[in-house]
Design a protein around this nucleic acid. Structure first.
Length: 131
RNA sequence: UUCCAUAAACCGGCCAUCGCUUUCCUUCGGGAAUGAGGAAAGUCCGGACAGCAUAGAGCGUCGCACCGGUGAAUAGCCGGGUCCGCCUUGGCGGAACAGACAGUGCCACAGAAAAUAACCGUCCCGCACCUGCGGGGUAAGGGUGAAAAUGUGGGGUAAGAGCCCACGUCCCGCCACAGUAAUGUUCCGGGAGGGUAAACCUUGCGUGCUGAAAUGCCACGUAAAUCCCUGGUCCUGGUGUCACCGUUUACGGUGUAGCCAGGAGAUGAAUGACUCGUUGAUCGUUCCGUAAGGGACACGGGGAAGGGUAGGCAGAUUGAUCCCCAUGGGUAACCGUGGGGACAGAUAAAUGAUGGCCUCGCUUUCAGCAAUGAGAGCCAGACAGAAUCCGGCUUACCGUUUAUGGUAUUCA
RNA sequence: GGCCCGUUGGUCAAGGGGUUAAGACGCCUCCCUUUCACGGAGGAAUCACGAGUUCGAAUCUCGUACGGGCUA
């Protein structure tokens, strides 16, 4: 039985070009203290789901804090992305995601976990609405 | 024993589940190994390495500044000297410790004056002759200030003054001695007319610039497009096509397109910039005109605006490496020898999440005069995350241990 | 990753060794007015912090903290 709660290199959003266009034209879902940016496209032969996480370095000056937040975000995404992934693989278009932490204080994992789940459910609804 | 300061070392461990990076294996399901620091930080210095086409010299720029050692190093470190400060006579701490007699500038307020000093005072001369006025000498006394022109005593003088003398202080030079040297000590000679070089500057030494987003290769893609500025040829030799002439089919001569080599010159370009030097790209065709000259195309160089890509590999992770033990040299920094061990490599960027247990701590309850014992709670909790790689410096830091110094208390 | 700059009342800021640190807007107090506005007078700065150089530092030098910019 293959592992489903993975987050390897192929599932990460790594292309600088796609990230730029995602920030430029992507749509946003705000679930405080998270900001989820998503964009549908058909640039890849197979419909895939790729995601990245980030924090603004102005809000968290120390690299230790930024690394900690990004790890928490990755963990929350990793454990809850499976329903969305199944929907995208069965659909027509690829989906690029980016989750930003916009809060001012250091996050707690349990809280981020529930918020991220909420944000991903909303994304899945939007994906279903789009033709 | 308590507390404080400084320095050094360490700064959790185990298990389970779900994951990540890299490498290897694979029956492609997966499996095995692997993975943050003493500061990885600040980017304050010094290098390695790479590029800027390229030997070099001078000028400029920038940096450094007691001596010796160490070191890859103009960094840093160790030892010594000089000066300053503190306690006090032996240590501890600090120093951006070349030059103010190369020159220029500045020194507020106060004060006569802040640098070739005459306000008061004092002395001399002239006039007036009851006070005073004018000229000159004088740095002993006064007050101001952060700072006022070498201290004391004597001689000297109209009054004074290093003007002269003696004893001091400081600076410069020479000789001798000690020391590798900085420097110290003694004698002799000369001088003493502030401060500031973290003001400009001078002297000595060093120094090209830019930094892995450097750089090389591959792939993809666009525009071999557009606009502006700018540039320009001769000689020699060889080869050789063609034409003409001589002529015996061979061959020879003359002219000539092209090509090759060499030389000279012109123009532009190349290091932050200038001078020289060096290297080196281009110097072609054609139109109008009698000519001077002008234009077009192509090419070389520079610029503008704009277009495209932003993927991969190398650089790139084992090196002036670090640690431990033994041993040799050295006061030490450090160096040598032998043995053993360790060393991640991402690139929207791995090294994590959750749960449990154990120690270390912290808080607290009970028992006890106290040492301590038992229980409960929090439950690893500081600073902090590699990004080309090294050597330093600086800054941050919970707790434990060790060393040194200080303070307080108890016992002898 | 590399490089450069800044920090002065609440805000914007001048001042680049020398009395008590300009100015504008705003705030507070007082005066003027029946009251408000206008006007007038006054007040509020450890010159980011810590050391050093100097007789004297907002200014010069070094370190620390914070903020900003440039660079494919």
């Amino acid at each position: 039985m293959p592992a489903i709660h993975t987050y390897g290199k192929t599932e990460r959003l790594k292309s600088r070009k796609r990230i730029e266009s995602l920030f430029k034209t992507g749509k946003r879902i705000q679930v405080h203290p998270l900001l989820l940016i998503y964009r549908l496209h058909e640039e890849l032969p197979q419909p895939t789901l790729q995601a990245g996480v980030g924090v603004r370095s102005k809000q968290f000056r120390k690299a230790v804090d930024r690394n900690r937040i990004k790890r928490i975000l990755r963990e929350a995404y990793r454990l809850q992305k499976e329903p969305l992934r199944a929907r995208v693989l069965g659909g027509q278009k690829s989906l690029d995601l980016f989750i930003m932490y916009t809060g001012q204080e250091m996050p707690v994992y349990a809280d981020i976990f529930t918020r991220a789940g909420e944000a991903l459910r909303k994304t899945m609804e939007r994906y279903g609405e789009e033709p």
